[in-house]
Design a protein around this nucleic acid. Structure first.
Length: 805
DNA sequence: CCGCTACGGGG
DNA sequence: GGGTACGTAGCGG
């Protein structure tokens, strides 16, 4: 039969010594499908002498009983040159890496003088390789030919696939998305699950084993944790989601669920193949994968991909929702929550709180899923993987896919020693014009459109075009450097990037023609965004120490060309009568003469863009009423942009100011924000000074509630294992000494109190603070309030002393 | 100043 | 079925 299926996820199993790909999918009519495909893993060997190497390996197969299915010669491109490789076809997914090791061993015995130079692509994951080989663009529609088979899996159709044909159809089928959230409570050092919520289009469920008479009717109450766990599993089964979304579920919700199921001897069966879920706890990046159901932990996508474009510095569900959705979590402070679980107080509110977390996660997912799917399709891998990738990994898989399609070998990952060496290598970054200190009015912000991608394409920056033999005198010379790039033959990366940029330009053109509220508009818009992400990350990937296409000279050349052109732009802006108040890498902040800044800027742009070569172009980012810039501190080259701008709508755009971190007390954060408002909205520096003075007076007079001074830090491991006595560790020790229970994972709430010694020595858990008199007013004045306020005020010529009462 | 350690998200 | 997170801030020496 033939079936049109949207690919949700892919993985593999081994059965009877054979590797089998599983494609999990969904039809447009809502049926869940699994397709089994036979395929053989393989890898490449680069030989000195192909025939001799082949014979040697064949001899080894006999001698060592290496499980090799087939060997043949194949031409592929390495470093821009076509070479003959041995393609080693294996049986099982883990074999390429094992056999490669065996080959390394027998090569080493010959003292490295044997016939094999290097092995390639032996670490490519089997199903990811399958997607590349079959030109499957991640989560896309496929036409599958095959036979229906019987299965015990929890699916509507199981097929033994014969042929796959990827379709150019970019809509999404109807997908059931369920958001999921857990609440836990620590008893005797063990986290237990006390509540769970589910949110989907037409159903909201909360299950808990905490009894109260006041629950709304959508709360289901059970007796024990075990029943709660069984309820969670049953609910997921009944909701039958295609996608489960969590916020931090990889590291929290699913980990805890797994642990508690083990402790309660409940089988955690959620997957469509009815296998018990297995999660690695040890490794740093462990992801909870449910076979046949896509678990998306949107925290990864937010922190890896969105974070640089977000205002917020903290990536909590609360802060992210506030920014993206304009909605917040229900406010429950930590003490209140502990009381709820301990004493059964306010449980109805906790149920609302738990459900709201799922609701926010659901709404974020609804907003981000189309983008995430487009990234998966652009990169050509499944969303389970791509949603967890960093920019570098997205670029790497994008390049890998296209390298293979262009007949090239995918370079190996660097060895650990090489990574260490590469980390030492430094090079000059973008050009920064330090901001003129003080407040600025009427600011225009300009930036180069995709500066580094444009430079890579325009000057053919690629590992194989670097210092070519053919263009020593007439290649693209890099400013300030001794390098050049080939002007005759297009490099692999510039060529790909050019295709990508042209594709994006095509989409953007089409976007202007389709109605803004149409489905096509949204699909295309997400697609252009995905392409932009890949394009912009390519420069960073050149310089990333773990990169398979690492090229320090390429990265260095990008910044060198970049510096050259932004200096040119600054020069031209000044010639045109602007004052350049600040410039960083690819952006310019301009102050006009006295006239109409908007018109002046637009005229300037028209003029300068005619003068720029190739793809280089300056764009208008926006106009602002007022702004304050905080110059780079002690760490040159690495400091982020720190500034705050006031838009015409009266909104504060704050960048790089770390007011909202956990190691700052609530009061310090409030002070910084208020100071910014005084300065930018009211131009009232005196007012800001007075305000800070008053706050300090209040601290000294003991009029600030202790809760505004609390610092929060978590004990991430058992107390005894700490060598480094941070403040929270010391506070926890004091708590323990007072007879209180202190466990791993506990959030230590402490304040800094009067006394002798380091800050750590003066950290006291709030449980042991009886009076506001004990607070170290000196610490809060000089290490919290003043630095937070001075971050902003020092550039306005205010000195610390002026803030002291 | 340098090297070591812990942080993040979740509750 | 396998995994080298990472970039940085703050403390102590």
């Amino acid at each position: 039969m033939k079936l049109k299926v949207f690919l949700l996820d892919a993985d593999y199993i081994t059965e009877k010594e054979e590797a089998i790909i599983r494609l999990w999918g969904k039809t447009d009519t809502g049926q869940n499908v699994v397709v089994f495909m036979r395929d053989d893993p393989y890898f490449y060997v680069l030989p000195q002498d192909p025939q001799r190497a082949k014979e040697e390996i064949l001899a080894q197969i006999k001698k060592k009983k290496l499980p090799i299915k087939d060997i043949f010669l194949e031409k592929r491109v390495l470093d821009g040159e076509s070479k003959t490789f041995l393609k080693i076809v294996c049986f099982l997914p883990q074999d390429p890496s094992k056999i490669r090791n065996a080959i390394k061993v027998f090569e080493a015995k010959r003292g490295g003088s044997g016939s094999i130079i290097e092995e390639y692509e032996y670490t490519l994951n089997f199903y990811r390789r399958f997607l590349i080989d079959h030109h499957i663009d991640g989560n896309c529609f496929l036409e599958i030919e095959g036979e229906k088979i019987e299965t015990k899996y929890d699916v509507d159709i199981a097929l033994k696939g014969r042929k796959i044909n990827p379709l150019e159809d970019y809509h999404l089928p109807p997908l059931k998305v369920v958001a999921f959230d857990l609440e836990t409570h620590e008893r005797a050092g063990k986290k237990e699950i006390v509540m769970a919520s589910f949110y989907t289009q037409d159903k909201q469920i909360v299950i808990t084993n905490q009894r109260t008479a006041h629950y709304p009717n959508w709360v289901k109450v059970v007796e024990t944790e075990k029943e709660l766990l069984e309820g969670i599993i049953k609910t997921i089964k009944e909701l039958n989601p295609d996608i489960i979304v969590t916020f931090y579920g990889d590291m929290f919700d699913f980990q805890i669920l797994n642990e508690r199921c083990k402790a309660n001897k409940v089988k955690l069966i959620l997957s469509r193949d009815k296998k018990q879920a297995k999660f690695a706890r040890r490794a740093r990046i462990s992801s909870a994968r449910l076979n046949g159901i896509v678990h998306l932990d949107i925290f990864h996508f937010i922190s890896n991909i969105l974070a640089p474009n977000l205002q917020t510095e903290v990536l909590s569900l609360d802060a992210v929702s506030a920014e993206l959705l304009g909605d917040k979590k229900i406010e429950v402070d930590y003490q209140e929550m502990l009381e709820a679980w301990r004493k059964g107080k306010n449980l109805a509110k906790l149920a609302e709180y738990c459900l709201k977390d799922s609701l926010l996660t659901y709404r974020l997912a609804k907003m981000l899923l189309p983008q995430m799917f487009e990234i998966a399709r652009t990169v050509g891998q499944v969303i389970f993987d791509t949603s967890r990738m960093t920019y570098g990994q997205l670029v790497e898989w994008y390049l890998s896919r296209h390298a293979h399609e262009k007949g090239a070998i995918i370079p190996n990952q660097p060895k650990y020693e090489d990574i260490l060496k590469r980390r030492q290598a430094t090079y000059v970054g973008g050009f920064v014009k330090e901001p003129a200190s003080g407040l600025h009015e009427n600011i225009a912000v300009l930036d180069f459109r995709s500066l580094y991608p444009s430079l890579i394409v325009s000057f053919n920056i690629s590992p194989e075009t670097l210092n070519c033999k053919c263009c020593k005198d007439n290649g693209y010379r890099v400013p300030e450097m001794e390098y050049w790039f080939c002007a005759r033959k297009k490099g692999f990366i510039p060529e790909l990037l050019k295709e990508l940029i042209e594709k994006r330009a095509g989409i953007k053109k089409r976007l202007k023609e389709v109605p803004k509220d149409s489905l096509e508009f949204h699909v295309l818009n997400n697609r252009q965004y995905a392409l932009k992400i890949i394009a912009n990350a390519t420069y960073g990937y050149f310089g990333f120490p773990g990169s398979k296409w690492y090229c320090k000279e390429c990265a260095e050349s990008c910044t060198a060309f970049g510096r050259f052109w932004i200096k040119k732009a600054i020069e031209e802006a000044e010639k045109a009568g602007f004052t350049v108040i600040y410039a960083d890498t690819d952006s310019l902040f301009l102050k006009g003469k006295d006239g109409n800044i908007e018109k002046e800027t637009k005229d300037f742009l028209t003029h300068i863009n005619q003068a720029f070569p190739g793809m280089l172009e300056l764009d208008l980012q926006g106009f602002y009423l007022r702004g304050i810039f905080i110059p780079r501190g002690a760490a040159p080259g690495t400091a982020k942009k720190r500034y705050a701008l006031l838009s015409k709508q009266g909104e504060l755009l704050i960048r790089g100011l770390e007011t909202v971190r956990r190691d700052w007390c609530r009061l310090a954060k409030e002070v910084q924000r208020t100071v910014l408002e005084y300065v930018l909205k009211n131009l009232d520096i005196e007012g800001a000074k007075e305000y800070v003075k008053k706050v300090i007076e209040k601290i000294r007079a003991g009029q600030v509630p202790v809760r505004d001074l609390i610092l929060y830090e978590e004990l991430t491991r058992p107390l005894e294992t700490y060598k480094q006595m941070g403040p929270h560790v010391m506070a926890a020790k004091k708590l323990k000494a007072s007879g209180k229970e202190v466990g791993e994972g506990m959030l230590v709430m402490f304040v800094i109190t009067k006394g002798k010694g380091t800050i750590s020595q003066k950290a006291t858990p709030i449980e042991l603070v009886n009076s506001i008199e004990e607070i170290d007013t000196h610490y809060y004045t000089y290490h919290q309030i003043l630095p937070a306020a001075m971050r902003v005020l020092q550039v306005l010529g205010v000195r610390k002393e002026q803030l002291l009462p």
